[in-house]
């Protein structure tokens, strides 16, 4: 029942001299979805993307884009995809329109088709007014929009976006999210990387968490969070002692909706199935056991928790400055 996947990556590896950027990485992207690669700085997101767009040969493994091998059928792959790089790959001395015209020729569009398409795209990303100014006078957000227009120019089947909203303000970010959803609704397949948890959560249909060059887990944000097993109550008690905590823990454990209890410093983290029932019941047990509650917090599972669970460390970049060749 699955149509043939848009992208199939098997046991992919890439080393730069002594540095292993990705290792034994496998993933599948379905046609028509927004697929996200989520990971901290240096995780290997851009490297994976670069291999998929054929500008970087893999050291091992295979990657097929729309059924074509990125190494042996690179030209075919290139003519089917669009790419929006992580750095603003913009020529400061060209106008927005000239960027698109240049790419039109590189994708071998006939002049007339190119012109229609360029006007269409400029309208789409709201750059019509600025189309004939040189790019060095653009703001960061305008450059990003131009980048995106460039990625869409060839009318691709798949667009690869490397951190599309990096460094944008909240409004522009939301607009670009909308825009990416719109593309998906028009039938495009979108592969994007991000290092924003929230972006992965809200925008991606499915995502893969990548860390140290490896995929740790794949699924829809909802599945991933549900996989952790329910919401979390953190209960802190007054004059907390290990004995008191153990007592409370023992009292709460038999409750039917409790899945898991952990003692973290002077509070209890309780995974529960149903917040409505659990909250009053836990307070009642505490009362009963004479444990005066200092505070009680309730949290839905967050993607961050998913990340911690599967990678064993909190979500922080390890090396924000990556030397670019």
């Amino acid at each position: 029942m699955n149509p043939s996947p848009a992208i199939e990556v098997t046991n992919l590896g890439k080393t730069y001299g002594a540095v292993t950027a990705i290792e034994d990485l496998s993933l599948t992207v379905q046609t028509g979805e927004i697929f996200g690669l989520l990971g901290p700085n240096g995780a290997g997101k851009s490297t994976t993307l670069r291999i998929l767009i054929t500008v970087l040969p893999p050291s091992s493994g295979t990657a097929r884009v729309l059924g074509h091998d990125v190494r042996t059928e690179a030209d075919t792959v290139r003519s089917l995809i669009g790419y929006v790089p992580q750095e603003r790959a913009i020529d400061r001395f060209l106008t927005g329109r000239e960027h698109l015209e240049l790419l039109g020729d590189l994708y071998h569009l006939p002049k007339h088709d190119a012109k229609t398409r360029i006007d269409e795209l400029l309208r789409l990303v709201n750059l019509e007014e600025h189309a004939d100014r040189v790019a060095k006078t653009y703001s960061g957000g305008m450059k990003r929009k131009l980048d995106i227009a460039c990625g869409l120019l060839p009318n691709p089947n798949i667009v690869f976006l490397d951190e599309p909203t990096l460094g944008l303000d909240v409004q522009s970010r939301l607009r670009i999210w909308d825009y990416i959803r719109q593309l998906r609704d028009n039938g495009l397949t979108i592969v994007m990387t991000t290092n924003y948890l929230e972006e992965a959560d809200q925008l991606c249909d499915r995502l893969a968490i990548i860390d140290h060059g490896n995929i740790r887990v794949t699924g829809s944000p909802k599945e991933l969070k549900a996989g952790l097993g329910g919401d979390r109550l953190s209960v802190t008690i007054q004059h907390s002692t290990p004995e008191k905590l153990a007592k409370l823990s023992g009292g709460v454990r038999p409750l039917p909706f409790v899945r898991d209890i952990r003692e973290v410093r002077n509070s209890l983290h309780i995974r529960v199935e149903s917040p409505e029932k659990s909250l009053p019941a836990v307070m009642e047990v505490a009362n009963h056991l004479d444990c005066a509650i200092d505070s009680i917090e309730y949290q839905r599972p967050r993607l961050e928790d998913v990340f911690v669970t599967y990678t064993g460390h909190p979500f922080t970049g390890e090396d924000p400055i990556i030397p670019k060749m």
């Binding site: 670069r50 767009i53 054929t54 500008v55 030209d75 290139r78 003519s79 995809i81 790419y83 790089p85 992580q86 750095e87 603003r88 790959a89 913009i90 020529d91 790419l103 590189l106 994708y107 071998h108 460039c150 060839p154 670019k324 060749m325």
Partner: peptide, 15 residues
């Protein structure tokens, strides 16, 4: 072009 990524953009096209 190589340093600012423009070359990579050019190389991702079917030229």
């Amino acid at each position: 072009d190589k340093e600012n990524g423009f070359l990579e953009r050019l190389m991702s096209t079917p030229i």
